[in-house]
């Protein structure tokens, strides 16, 4: 049977999704699916790149050479993750330079958690434990995203991220067994990052209009509230093992539900941070823009040099016309 009409292509797409198979770069897909995917992947990529800043903030001041090496390697991994994801977005026809513009101008977002400052070395450990922990909760389901290149990038990323979380937690364990100052530092960092970590899962389900379509298309595999609950359930025992108190007086095990109950998230603060008024939004964007702008002369020089060497690259793809000359 030959597929000739758009409804047929659409049916083929729907069937692929229904069978939980992957959509690949050269498959037909609805424009909205493609646009949604590009936006989701790009914002994920932006998060990795921007996330290098709050953590990178502590590399030069790391208090032992081993910790310094670990943190530097972690930040390097994040650059790599960003690139894997931009690469996946580009298979959908996006252009990395254009995505960078959208990031810098604020038209595309990144995870709101990175708009908070990292103020002590304990923040490094807490980010590994809570922020990477929340990211893993979000990301593991994405390893089964309906879009092939994204799913494959996520498998690679999740594997590396699990190391990051373990290293962060190990730092906190070491600190909690260290001096009184260190224990207070860990508790203070936890107090500042707990609620923003819960916000990483996005607004509550009843305030998330796109969830239904995203779930139908395999763009999203679980709702925000489901993932947030799973994160809390996983993390509470980890906090107990560490000996830190999570800053929520309403946190308690609910035997009936089989889950932890927890207090209300401050969605006003979330909205303020997401809309650009968080403590570090301007600073993060400025740094990214400066690196990009200051680096233009370097990128141009590399292109100019490449043109002068033996095997010049095509600058653009020639349109596939019926031109039979040459």
């Amino acid at each position: 049977m030959t597929i000739t009409t758009e409804p047929d292509l659409r049916a083929h797409f729907d069937e692929t999704i229904a069978r939980d198979r992957r959509i690949e770069p050269r498959d037909w897909m609805p424009d909205k699916y493609r646009a949604t995917m590009i936006r989701q992947i790009a914002q994920h990529a932006h998060s990795e790149i921007i996330g290098m800043q709050p953590e990178g903030n502590w590399i030069t001041r790391a208090p032992s050479l081993r910790r310094k090496a670990i943190l530097l390697a972690k930040v390097q991994d994040e650059a790599g993750h960003g690139m894997y994801l931009y690469s996946a977005a580009e298979t959908l026809g996006a252009d990395r330079a254009d995505l960078t513009d959208k990031l810098i101008s604020g038209r595309q977002k990144y995870s709101s958690i990175f708009n908070y400052p990292t103020l002590t070395y304990a923040d490094v450990g807490v980010i590994g434990w809570l922020v990477d922990g929340a990211a893993i909760c979000n990301q593991v389901p994405l390893c089964r995203s309906s879009y092939g290149p994204y799913a494959r990038a996520m498998i690679r990323i999740c594997k590396e991220e699990s190391f990051h979380q373990r290293q962060g937690y190990e730092l906190l364990l070491t600190m909690m067994r260290g001096s009184q100052d260190q224990r207070e530092m860990v508790q203070d960092a936890t107090n500042r990052f707990w609620w923003p970590s819960l916000m990483m899962f996005g607004p509550p389900d009843d305030a998330s209009p796109n969830t239904e379509q995203s779930m139908a298309w395999g763009v999203k595999r679980h709702t925000n509230d489901e993932l947030r609950q799973r994160f809390v359930d996983m993390t509470v025992p980890q906090a107990e093992k560490l000996g830190v108190t999570l800053p929520d007086p309403e946190l308690r095990w609910n035997e009936e539900r089989g889950h932890y109950d927890f207090g209300p998230v401050d969605w006003d603060e979330f909205k303020a941070v997401v809309s650009g008024n968080g403590p570090c939004n301007a600073q993060r964007a400025t740094r990214r823009k400066a690196a990009h702008d200051d680096g233009a002369w370097v990128r141009e020089a590399a292109v100019a040099h490449a043109r002068k060497t033996a095997t010049p690259l095509p600058e653009r793809i020639e349109p596939a016309a019926g031109d039979s000359s040459d």
């Binding site: 037909w28 298979t91 026809g93 793809i317 596939a320």
Partner: peptide, 26 residues
């Protein structure tokens, strides 16, 4: 690249580029 789904003459036949979407082209 070839088209994996050979049943779609909706798009140009074999010999297309890897990323067929419009924004990839300058």
């Amino acid at each position: 690249a070839s088209s994996p789904d050979e049943k779609d003459p909706f798009f140009a036949p074999a010999g297309d580029k890897v990323y067929r979407h419009p924004t990839f082209y300058e």
